[in-house]
Design a protein around this nucleic acid. Structure first.
Length: 761
DNA sequence: TTTAGCTCAATTTTT
DNA sequence: TTGAGCTAAA
């Protein structure tokens, strides 16, 4: 069955490690020289393959560990890989040189940039701006350019800039390529934004990659250094790489640029779900063209799901045209059918999910952590949270507001950021009047105007402006100058004390001096006490961080490390996400978006809200392209293949969207699943929920919701007063949608759909 | 300068 | 429906 095995002999004896792999995985592990692409289907053991490969390189091939690079997209994936590689190496007991570099694209690049700081535009440790910091700076740039933010939406400009960065397009190129007014203005802002970004000694997420790329591209010595350093490159989730990341990898690996071409990329185009964020699916589809003669390995054996789940997911994804044909198979058992349910409304949907969870908990030896609920949008989580809370089922929501994005945490983080990097105008402006010290909008505007005006002549920071305003009452007023002076003195005190203090000590000094907790206590609301709790948790995080990093150092070393440590902490807080904190072991039901679910697996999965318009979700139905639908379909595939044993696909008839009642059509993806894999179920939990029995998955035709109202025509209902009837016409839309029903008793009546929706069978 | 009330917009979000 | 951000009044 393995036609490749006949022609190929491993260069070295397989290690015991390699012996635990299947033929294909082993093939990928042993192919260490030259370009390699591994098409790894869902659940095919690609992490196992990757970690074995890294261990094999270090152990059997005697490659110095530090020459191995592995990049992932999440900290969680990186941490898992690091852990498993370490375990492999530990098991073998061999001493090895240094550590393999395993991290996210961003963390690897940030480390490189910090190492080469002298070759960057930065003169001090840089700050990383998240999306909201970035938006603030874009607004500032627009105001400096006197571009009206009503005619040009700053968020749209931000989108344009970030798209350019994903494609490694620089401001000059963007300007040259601009064909319309918006693109031209966006390019202007982009240029101005870049200037102020560097003046702030700051980077945004996209720039981390782009700057690293430019650094390697423009400096032969640095390029050669890292080509030598990273001799074996591994890229996880390759289908999610964007153009800039692709170029970065090429520069390290491509022969034409002096590289070694020892690059192993692992991906699955069927799981590419970040096209909307710049991921370029061509990177994986074209890899073979970019690296002629590259070796291709397909991992098609799935170790995760039942035959039924795999077959159903496969029949969905087969409808995509932009993919390499591959067929997943498994030795796992047939398993039970996929349970499909159509509920009355989102409340009923949540009730049913929780009831099923309780039932399965009672019947089998399952625990809360076996269950996951996936939805398309975060807004859908509320109903589930309500019912789970009421039923006392422990749960954990992934996503939503990050811990570090909470107002109180961000405020304090901004103080820390300003201490490390006072050039950071965004953070300075944020904390200038937090907590309130009487420096309001008018003052800020004056300072800002002065900042913009004086910056035309030289490189003056906002911090310089503040210091000047503290001494010069003519800039504002004598009262205001005093207040600004107080703030400047305060920050200077923190800067002076920083080297003497532990992180947590510095944190307490800040809190005490600015009286943050006191202000919150005075509020005395539930919300403010939650904020105080978060601040306490932040304290714990700081202490733990410090313990982890200062463990083996002498007192003297500790002193030197403090500034470095503070920047490292700030960096980590910006580069970490919610999912990193997800504990698989925690005994709770997990709730998350389909996007967050990638890379995870659960014995029981509820995929909810499967309704056309919501999932697949398309912003403008008229403009829904096949590509958009294909990405949604991949999302569906990702969601289904997370499930090991039991999969529920659910949707509702009536959903309140933005306060409006909307009548939903079942997701078109249902039609793509053969009926033999599906089991229709009657659900009636509690008396408020009507039964929504669905006769057949094919009963609902494919239709365009809202715009096309024919979806209801032909449906049957039983009206409590008029009896059995069929829809013969429908008109209107949204809340006002009406249906004309012809009753078997002979009458014909018109109803508002929302009043009779529950009578349909 | 602060704040109460209004308008407007609104997917997904590894970093 | 919810929230963020802005204008008008205290």
């Amino acid at each position: 069955m393995n036609d490749f095995a006949n022609t190929w002999a491993p260069p070295l004896q397989p290690t015991p490690l390699a012996a635990q792999l299947n033929d294909r995985q082993r093939e990928a592990v042993l192919h260490t020289e030259g370009p390699l692409i591994v098409l790894a289907g869902a659940g095919s053991g690609k992490t196992k393959m990757l970690t074995s490969r890294i261990a094999y390189l270090i152990e059997a091939m005697k490659v110095p560990a530090y020459q191995v690079l592995a990049v992932t997209f999440t900290n969680k994936a990186a941490a898992e890989m690091r852990e498993r590689v370490e375990k492999n190496l530990l098991a073998s007991g061999s001493g090895h040189l240094g550590q393999p570099e395993i991290g996210t694209f961003h963390s690897v690049c940030v480390r490189l940039l910090r190492r080469e700081l002298g070759r960057t535009p930065f003169t001090q440790p840089f700050t990383i701006y998240d999306d909201s910091d970035q938006l603030s700076l874009i607004k500032a740039a627009m105001s400096a350019l006197q571009i009206d933010d009503k005619s040009f939406n700053p968020k749209a400009v931000q989108g344009a800039i970030n798209r350019a960065k994903c494609d490694a397009v620089e401001p000059a190129e963007a300007r040259a390529a601009a064909t319309d007014v918006f693109a031209r203005q966006a390019a202007r802002v982009y240029e101005e934004y870049q200037k102020s970004l560097f003046a702030n000694q700051a980077l945004d997420f996209g720039e981390i990659i782009c700057m690293t790329y430019r650094l390697l591209r423009d400096h032969a010595d640095i390029r050669e250094k890292y080509q030598r350093r990273f001799r074996y490159i591994h890229v996880d989730e390759y289908q999610d790489t964007n153009r800039a990341q692709y170029l970065l990898l090429s520069i390290l690996a491509a022969k034409s640029l002096g590289g070694h071409e020892n690059i192993c990329v692992v991906g699955d185009e069927d799981q590419s779900i970040y096209k909307w964020r710049g991921a370029d699916i061509r990177n994986i589809l074209d890899f073979e063209r970019e690296y002629p003669g590259c070796h291709v390995v397909k991992l098609e054996q799935n170790y995760r799901s039942t035959k039924t789940i795999l077959a159903a997911a496969g029949s969905v994804i087969r409808n995509n045209l932009a993919r390499k044909e591959k067929t997943l198979w498994t030795e796992n058992e047939e398993g039970r059918k996929i349970i499909r349910a159509q509920l009355a409304d989102e409340r009923a949907e949540a009730e049913m999910v929780v009831a099923e969870i309780k039932q399965l908990l009672a019947g089998n030896d399952r625990s809360y952590s076996d269950f996951a609920i996936f939805y398309r949008t975060n807004a859908q989580s509320r109903q589930f949270e309500d019912v789970l809370r009421r039923e006392k089922v422990p749960y954990q929501v992934v996503g939503g507001l990050r811990f570090y994005d909470r107002k109180e945490i961000k405020d304090i983080l901004c103080y820390l950021k300003c201490i490390v990097n006072p050039s950071d105008s965004i953070s300075l402006k944020r904390i200038l009047n937090v907590p309130g010290r009487g420096i309001g909008k008018t003052t800020l505007e004056k300072l800002d105007q002065f900042y913009i005006d004086s910056n035309r002549t030289g490189s003056i920071t906002f911090w310089d402006v503040l210091q000047r305003a503290a001494l010069d009452p003519s800039l504002t007023s004598s009262g205001t100058a005093k207040k600004i002076s107080g703030f400047v003195q305060l920050l200077k005190k923190f800067m002076a004390d920083q080297p003497k203090l532990l992180l947590s000590e510095l944190y307490h000094e800040i809190l005490d001096e600015i009286g943050y907790v006191r202000v919150l206590r005075e509020e005395g609301t539930e919300e403010s006490s939650a904020r105080i709790e978060n601040l306490e948790e932040f304290d714990t995080i700081l202490q733990e961080f410090e313990e982890d990093h200062l463990e083996n150092l002498t007192e003297e070393q500790k002193g030197q490390k403090k500034l470095e440590l503070l920047s490292l902490f700030i960096e980590q807080s910006t580069l970490s996400s919610d999912i990193d904190q997800l504990e698989a072991s925690a005994s709770s039901v997990k709730l998350m978006t389909l996007h967050s679910s990638k890379g995870l697996e659960f014995p029981v999965v509820f995929l909810v809200g499967m309704e056309d318009g919501l999932f697949p979700s398309v912003r403008n139905w008229g403009e829904a392209t096949d590509e958009d639908i294909e990405e949604e379909r991949r999302l569906c595939y990702v969601g289904m293949t997370r499930s090991r044993e039991v999969l529920y696909l659910m949707g509702v008839v009536v959903r309140r969207i933005w306060g409006d009642v909307s009548y939903q059509e079942p997701s078109r993806f249902f039609q793509e699943i053969p009926e033999e894999y599906l089991e229709m179920r009657d659900f009636s939990y509690g008396n408020r929920v009507q039964e929504y029995r669905v006769g057949s998955s094919r009963q609902f035709g494919y239709s365009k919701p809202k715009a096309d109202l024919t979806g209801w025509v032909g449906r049957e209902m039983i009206h409590p007063e008029y009896g059995r009837g069929t829809v013969i016409a429908s008109e209107g839309g949204g809340t006002d949608q009406k249906v004309t029903i012809c009753f078997s008793r002979g009458s014909e009546k018109k109803f508002l759909l929302r009043y009779v929706a529950s009578f349909f069978s």
